[in-house]
Protein backbone atom coordinates (compact mmCIF):
# COMPACT_ATOMS: atom_id res chain seq x y z
CA UNK A 1 0.00 0.00 0.00
CA UNK A 2 1.40 3.43 -0.98
CA UNK A 3 1.79 5.93 1.79
CA UNK A 4 0.75 9.26 0.26
CA UNK A 5 2.21 11.39 3.06
CA UNK A 6 5.56 9.65 2.72
CA UNK A 7 5.55 10.14 -1.05
CA UNK A 8 4.79 13.85 -0.58
CA UNK A 9 7.72 14.25 1.82
CA UNK A 10 10.02 12.32 -0.53
CA UNK A 11 8.95 14.51 -3.46
CA UNK A 12 9.62 17.65 -1.41
CA UNK A 13 13.07 16.32 -0.48
CA UNK A 14 13.91 15.46 -4.09
CA UNK A 15 12.71 18.82 -5.45
CA UNK A 16 14.76 20.70 -2.85
CA UNK A 17 17.92 18.63 -3.39
CA UNK A 18 17.66 19.08 -7.14
CA UNK A 19 17.02 22.84 -6.99
CA UNK A 20 17.89 25.30 -4.24
CA UNK A 21 19.36 22.57 -2.05
CA UNK A 22 22.70 22.45 -3.87
CA UNK A 23 23.44 26.11 -3.17
CA UNK A 24 22.02 25.97 0.35
CA UNK A 25 24.23 23.06 1.36
CA UNK A 26 27.28 24.92 0.05
CA UNK A 27 26.31 28.08 1.95
CA UNK A 28 25.61 26.12 5.13
CA UNK A 29 29.19 24.87 5.16
CA UNK A 30 30.17 28.39 6.25
CA UNK A 31 29.25 30.19 9.45
CA UNK A 32 27.23 33.39 8.89
CA UNK A 33 30.25 35.61 9.47
CA UNK A 34 32.53 33.49 7.28
CA UNK A 35 30.03 33.57 4.43
CA UNK A 36 29.75 37.37 4.63
CA UNK A 37 33.57 37.64 4.69
CA UNK A 38 33.82 35.33 1.68
CA UNK A 39 31.32 37.48 -0.23
CA UNK A 40 33.20 40.67 0.72
CA UNK A 41 36.43 39.18 -0.62
CA UNK A 42 34.74 38.00 -3.80
CA UNK A 43 33.20 41.44 -4.33
CA UNK A 44 36.58 43.09 -3.86
CA UNK A 45 38.14 41.02 -6.66
CA UNK A 46 35.12 41.42 -8.93
CA UNK A 47 34.89 45.20 -8.51
CA UNK A 48 38.67 45.58 -8.94
CA UNK A 49 38.60 43.54 -12.15
CA UNK A 50 35.55 45.45 -13.46
CA UNK A 51 37.09 48.84 -12.68
CA UNK A 52 40.38 47.82 -14.32
CA UNK A 53 38.44 46.80 -17.41
CA UNK A 54 36.52 50.09 -17.44
CA UNK A 55 39.78 52.04 -17.03
CA UNK A 56 41.37 50.12 -19.89
CA UNK A 57 38.38 50.73 -22.15
CA UNK A 58 38.25 54.43 -21.30
CA UNK A 59 42.00 54.74 -21.80
CA UNK A 60 41.70 53.21 -25.25
CA UNK A 61 38.73 55.47 -26.03
CA UNK A 62 40.53 58.70 -25.10
CA UNK A 63 44.10 57.50 -25.65
CA UNK A 64 45.57 60.91 -26.54
CA UNK A 65 43.87 62.69 -23.67
CA UNK A 66 44.82 59.89 -21.26
CA UNK A 67 48.50 59.96 -22.22
CA UNK A 68 48.55 63.77 -22.00
CA UNK A 69 47.08 63.79 -18.51
CA UNK A 70 49.28 60.99 -17.17
CA UNK A 71 52.42 62.74 -18.38
CA UNK A 72 51.29 66.19 -17.19
CA UNK A 73 52.04 67.79 -13.84
CA UNK A 74 48.46 67.21 -12.74
CA UNK A 75 48.78 63.43 -12.82
CA UNK A 76 48.46 63.23 -9.02
CA UNK A 77 45.04 64.88 -9.17
CA UNK A 78 43.84 62.36 -11.79
CA UNK A 79 45.30 59.50 -9.78
CA UNK A 80 43.45 60.76 -6.71
CA UNK A 81 40.19 61.13 -8.68
CA UNK A 82 40.54 57.62 -10.11
CA UNK A 83 41.22 56.15 -6.69
CA UNK A 84 38.26 58.04 -5.21
CA UNK A 85 35.87 56.70 -7.87
CA UNK A 86 37.21 53.16 -7.37
CA UNK A 87 36.83 53.36 -3.59
CA UNK A 88 33.32 54.78 -3.88
CA UNK A 89 32.18 52.00 -6.21
CA UNK A 90 33.91 49.42 -4.00
CA UNK A 91 32.28 50.83 -0.87
CA UNK A 92 28.73 50.68 -2.27
CA UNK A 93 29.31 47.27 -3.85
CA UNK A 94 30.59 45.90 -0.55
CA UNK A 95 27.57 47.26 1.34
CA UNK A 96 25.24 45.67 -1.22
CA UNK A 97 27.24 42.42 -1.01
CA UNK A 98 27.01 42.32 2.80
CA UNK A 99 23.24 42.83 2.82
CA UNK A 100 22.74 40.39 -0.03
CA UNK A 101 24.93 37.74 1.65
CA UNK A 102 23.14 38.11 4.98
CA UNK A 103 19.75 37.86 3.28
CA UNK A 104 20.82 34.81 1.26
CA UNK A 105 22.29 33.10 4.33
CA UNK A 106 19.10 33.67 6.33
CA UNK A 107 16.95 32.33 3.49
CA UNK A 108 19.11 29.25 2.95
CA UNK A 109 19.08 28.50 6.70
CA UNK A 110 15.27 28.66 6.70
CA UNK A 111 15.03 26.31 3.72
CA UNK A 112 17.58 23.93 5.23
CA UNK A 113 15.65 23.83 8.50
CA UNK A 114 12.54 22.76 6.62
CA UNK A 115 14.63 20.21 4.70
CA UNK A 116 15.96 18.70 7.93
CA UNK A 117 12.43 18.52 9.31
CA UNK A 118 11.42 16.60 6.20
CA UNK A 119 14.44 14.30 6.61
CA UNK A 120 13.46 13.71 10.23
CA UNK A 121 9.93 12.74 9.26
CA UNK A 122 11.34 10.36 6.63
CA UNK A 123 13.51 8.74 9.29
CA UNK A 124 10.40 8.35 11.44
CA UNK A 125 8.55 6.69 8.55
CA UNK A 126 11.42 4.25 7.97
CA UNK A 127 11.61 3.42 11.67
CA UNK A 128 7.87 2.73 11.74
CA UNK A 129 8.20 0.50 8.67
CA UNK A 130 11.04 -1.47 10.25
CA UNK A 131 9.05 -1.94 13.43
CA UNK A 132 6.07 -3.18 11.42
CA UNK A 133 8.30 -5.68 9.57
CA UNK A 134 9.77 -6.99 12.81
CA UNK A 135 6.32 -7.40 14.28
CA UNK A 136 5.25 -9.35 11.18
CA UNK A 137 8.27 -11.67 11.53
CA UNK A 138 7.51 -12.34 15.16
Amino acid sequence: MLDQRKIAVMARLAVYEKGAGKGDIRISSYSNLDYVRYEILKTFFRVTAAMALILFMLAAYKADYFVKQVTSENYQLYLFLGAAVYLLVLFFSEIAAVFSAMHRYRQSKGRLKEHYNNLRSMRRYYREEEQEKEQEKE
Binding site: R46, V47, A49, A50, L53, F56, M57, S93, A96, S100
Partner: peptide
Protein backbone atom coordinates in the same frame (compact mmCIF):
# COMPACT_ATOMS: atom_id res chain seq x y z
CA UNK B 1 36.29 43.39 -27.82
CA UNK B 2 34.50 46.43 -26.34
CA UNK B 3 31.22 44.49 -26.52
CA UNK B 4 32.87 41.63 -24.64
CA UNK B 5 34.31 44.20 -22.21
CA UNK B 6 30.89 45.68 -21.41
CA UNK B 7 29.44 42.17 -20.97
CA UNK B 8 32.27 41.30 -18.60
CA UNK B 9 31.81 44.50 -16.56
CA UNK B 10 28.08 43.79 -16.24
CA UNK B 11 28.82 40.20 -15.25
CA UNK B 12 31.45 41.10 -12.67
CA UNK B 13 29.40 43.84 -11.04
CA UNK B 14 25.85 42.53 -11.18
CA UNK B 15 25.85 38.75 -11.73
CA UNK B 16 24.76 37.86 -8.19
CA UNK B 17 21.78 40.24 -8.34
Amino acid sequence: LPVLGVFLVLFLLFERY
